[in-house]
Design a protein around this nucleic acid. Structure first.
Length: 258
DNA sequence: ATGGCTGAGCTACTCAGA
């Protein structure tokens, strides 16, 4: 089974890119972030023709997350945490794998910059609420796959110039600590587990020639609970979509399980 | 290098992204 996560930076501006991509990579489930559309503006019919059911948590202009899926997703939930600003940043649901329910959690973590503003406080509170909620979920179900745009650079090797990002909300130590706290609950960063030393990125800015210079960062992740780890087969950052016409600034990360 | 570029909403320009 192929599960893929991609911050598309507008589902409507990226429609052709997404359609081409799913035709070539054929994900069973695609986690989308930053769809930047309300539910009624989501191109559900187009994806239906391509063979996918849409599960959408939209918002006007900003944020928004969704699943596209070939298989049924049960118990879809739009209020995973109490988001004080009511931003559409998490959609979760359950799939059946060999008679077990596996919880899928698709997240778009707040950016948090600049760090001397309320935005940084919001990111910290958001991550605290998220981590607490994971504790609750773990009591009921220990089969969990969390993926999406974490807006967190886990370690120095995950960014082209770590010094430059020391005081950035994506790399600041207190944020990375919250990521580690989450992992310490019993999760594995699958990319880093499989690729111990590899330096690959999932995001490159649109400006300053970041893409051709490979000035990127690894901020999109798959975390699987340790119950799920034995069924993980492979993970791949697919850089091809980032090099195409009118690309998103993020590129997809592809997980193979079972 | 707090600029650079891109998208939404709207129709001039701001806000947000990372």
């Amino acid at each position: 089974m192929r599960i893929i996560s991609w911050n598309v930076n507008s589902v409507r501006a990226r429609l052709d890119n997404i359609l081409n991509y799913i035709k070539s990579r054929k994900p069973d489930i695609l986690f989308l972030q930053e769809i930047k559309a309300q539910n009624q503006d989501f191109p559900e019919e187009v994806f239906k023709e391509a063979g996918y059911t849409s599960y959408v948590f939209g918002q006007k202009s900003y944020n928004g997350v969704a699943f596209l899926s070939k298989i049924e997703i049960l118990n879809i939930n739009y209020d995973f945490i109490k988001d004080k600003l009511n931003q559409a940043r998490i959609i979760s649901g359950d799939i059946k794998i060999k008679k077990n329910l596996v919880k899928l959690i698709n997240i778009y973590v707040p950016n948090g910059n600049p760090i001397d503003t309320e935005k940084f406080q919001y990111k910290k509170r958001w991550l605290d609420l998220f981590n607490k909620k994971i504790d609750e979920i773990l009591k009921k179900n220990s089969n969990i796959i969390i993926s999406g745009d974490f807006n967190i650079i886990p370690e120095e090797i995950d960014v082209y110039d770590s010094k430059r990002y020391e005081n950035d909300a994506l790399f600041k130590l207190e944020i990375r600590k919250k990521f580690r706290e989450l992992i310490n609950k019993g999760f594995t960063d699958v990319y880093r587990y499989i690729n111990k030393k590899k330096e690959e990125y999932t995001f490159w800015d649109y400006f300053a020639g970041s893409w051709p210079k490979n000035h990127g960062m690894r901020i999109d992740h798959f975390l699987v609970s340790n119950n799920i780890l034995p069924i993980v087969k492979n993970i791949n950052i697919n850089k091809k979509p980032r090099g195409e016409l009118k690309p998103s600034d993020h590129t997809p990360i592809e997980l193979e399980i079972i």
